[in-house]
């Protein structure tokens, strides 16, 4: 379980998170929605210790990770996987090296086993025969799927998705949504996704939380989100320029 308690974060004069409170239960998929630049990715980076909050706590299975040193953070991160918005594949490495990096660095598995595991993980995300390709040779959708394969290659307990469907066509977006759901079902992982793609949020979420003006202003199931009267959430899910959220 992940508990985010009163987390504040500022960059220079810009206060991005203003007391975020959120609990993610074991095994659920929590989707955090909100406008671009509202701090969703910042919140995600706090959960995996890439950023430290100015105030507040982040508890992973009851332990506050905000006071962890580098070694403790690295130990924690082995339990996490993360899919980045632009995939963040290592340009200088092949697909095989990207997906197998964690296994090669942190396990004593023989190379043949690692190759098998890489091939199996790539198959899970619907890719095969691209192990020797470099990221520059892949399409946007393939990069996302390789990024997902890298995130789940170490069999993590938690997977974080930063805008998983941004930058891909609607059909590929649906393929990625299906993959997120099937990975969760196959691997029993706890997932946290941040997105402004409402279709994606409804498809993959067990619960949806909305981040607005640095705080979580709504939490509910996809059904509750669809039917809510909350004016900010309504405006966001309807994609309307009229309402309490300033359009510009």
């Amino acid at each position: 379980m992940i508990e985010i308690k009163e987390v504040h974060k500022s960059f220079a004069q810009n206060e991005v998170l203003r007391g975020v409170n959120l609990t993610i239960q074991k095994g659920e998929t929590m989707v955090i929605i909100g406008r671009s630049g509202c701090g969703k990715s910042v919140l995600l980076k706090h959960i995996i210790g890439l950023l430290k909050p100015d105030q507040g706590k982040i508890l992973v299975d009851g332990e506050d990770i905000t006071s962890y040193n580098d070694n403790e953070l690295n130990k924690l991160r082995k339990r996490f996987g993360m899919l980045f918005q632009a995939s963040a594949l290592f340009d200088s490495m092949s697909v095989d090296e990207n997906v197998g990096l964690g296994l090669r660095e942190h396990t004593d598995l023989p190379e043949t086993e690692i190759k098998k595991k890489v091939t199996k993980t790539l198959k899970l995300v619907g890719l095969s025969g691209i192990e020797e390709k470099k990221p520059a040779e892949l399409s946007g959708g393939m990069k996302k799927r390789v990024g997902l394969a890298r995130a789940i290659a170490m069999d993590p307990e938690y997977v974080l998705y930063d805008e998983p469907t941004t930058g891909v066509d609607p059909i590929m977006a649906d393929v990625i949504n299906e993959l997120i759901v099937s990975c969760r079902n196959a691997l029993s992982i706890t997932s946290i996704a941040v997105t402004h793609d409402i279709v994606s949020a409804h498809k993959i979420a067990d619960r949806i939380a909305m981040l607005y003006e640095g705080k979580i202003i709504f939490i509910g199931t996809p059904e509750e989100t669809k039917n809510t009267d909350h004016p900010v959430v309504r405006q966001f899910i309807e994609g309307s320029a009229q309402g309490p959220i300033p359009a510009l």
Binding site: I48, N74, F84, Q85, F90, L101, G102, M154
Partner: peptide, 17 residues
Amino acid sequence: TMKDTEQIDALETLALD
């Protein structure tokens, strides 16, 4: 370029310094 494209963050999420 690695910093700008979050590749350095990706290394850290893989528990690599």
